[in-house]
Design a protein around this nucleic acid. Structure first.
Lengths: 195, 195
DNA sequence: TAATCTCAGTGATTTGAATCAAGAATAACA
DNA sequence: TGTTATTCTTGATTCAAATCACTGAGATTA
């Protein structure tokens, strides 16, 4: 499990093995059962971010009209940003719930600064991760804007094929911005064309 | 112009005024005329990122079917990320063109490391900016997923009202993921309901 | 000043997703 | 194991955006 972290550190920084071990050991790593709610919309979060080592976390919110909207699914090697300079002190706009049993690195805001002071390379790593994340997000957004529901489903099918079996279909539908009924029909349409 | 940068440094870091001035003076700041193409889809970029001090830059790409898709408009105080650890060496997926006369901070990849070594606080600032950017992007994405074309237009009307007068309507339409005809009708519908 | 282009508005028609309304299939539970 | 939830599928209808086709308004240029 820890070697996922080592991989990151090796890829993005020049941190040596001793320090890598020291860093890994100072990190808080917790396990959560499927269904566990990590954060509830409207509440204050003590956690600054999570990093998924194993499992799947769904981010969603209830909009003004009472509809549940899934805004993301976080899986292995993805960071879940919760608090930043701008949102600290704000009530959360999202809920986070484990869709599967999970193992997560838990980042709290107080230990962050201590760690960055001790291991400056760690901040570099996080910065690079953020830059990559942002780039991916932008690309995903550009693609989403441009595509129809059917194309969006096919895009997930290409880019995150495991997701389709790991999450309930009605949640996936809400992540695609469509109704469960439409997703059901889209799947039928695609299967028909393939056979 | 420079005080936009000072504001950032004061907000996010403890950099003192002398260093702020030194940093500002080492930054490359360029002016570009309306219509200037900063980066062309399919070409290699020498620039790692821009930061908009004044003006508006449109990011877009031509998709497989030949359709032009606007994926973002960057205006004052927004960063335009171009290259990251993952995409360095890749041909650009986007084009960047000035929609107005622009004044931009130009960040190149070589000077970045030198600057970060000299001013570690600068890296902290950039990291925090990235975290905020990512948070905003996530929120925008969640909202986009959930909303109809009409709601998306109203959202831009609320959040970036200046944008509507600053950019051509057909480009705005493509940014909203709709046809120019639909945007025209949506505007008519909204004006009718207001009067 | 006329001619050309590009962009915004309008109409008619098509199309695909939303909605409303039931059933079928699974999963959860007593 | 049978009962109750939930989740998924399917059908009929509605509705809003896409598409196609055209007109008019500005801007640009010859």
């Amino acid at each position: 499990m820890i070697n996922i972290l080592s991989k990151y550190m090796s890829d993005f920084t020049l941190i040596n093995e001793d320090e890598q071990r020291a860093i890994s050991e100072s990190l808080q790593i917790d396990e959560y059962k499927k269904g566990k709610c990590l954060l509830r919309q409207g509440e204050l979060s003590a956690v600054k971010c999570y990093f998924v080592l194993k499992g799947c976390v769904r981010q969603f919110f209830i909009d003004e009209s009472g509809k549940e909207v899934t805004s993301n699914f976080f899986t292995e090697e993805q960071a879940i940003p919760i608090i930043n300079e701008q949102t600290q002190g704000d009530l959360s706009k999202y809920s986070l719930v484990c869709v599967e049993d999970c193992i997560l690195v838990v980042g709290d805001i107080v230990s962050e600064k201590t760690m960055f002071d001790k291991y400056p390379q760690l901040e570099t790593m996080i910065r690079k991760m953020m830059e990559i994340n942002l780039g991916e997000m932008q690309e995903q957004f550009g693609e989403f804007i441009n595509s129809s529901p059917e194309e969006r489903y096919e895009s997930v099918l290409r880019k995150r094929p495991q997701l389709i079996d790991r999450v309930p279909q009605h949640q996936l539908a809400s992540y695609l911005g469509i109704t469960p009924e439409s997703l059901s029909r889209i799947k039928k349409r695609i299967n028909k064309n393939k056979s």
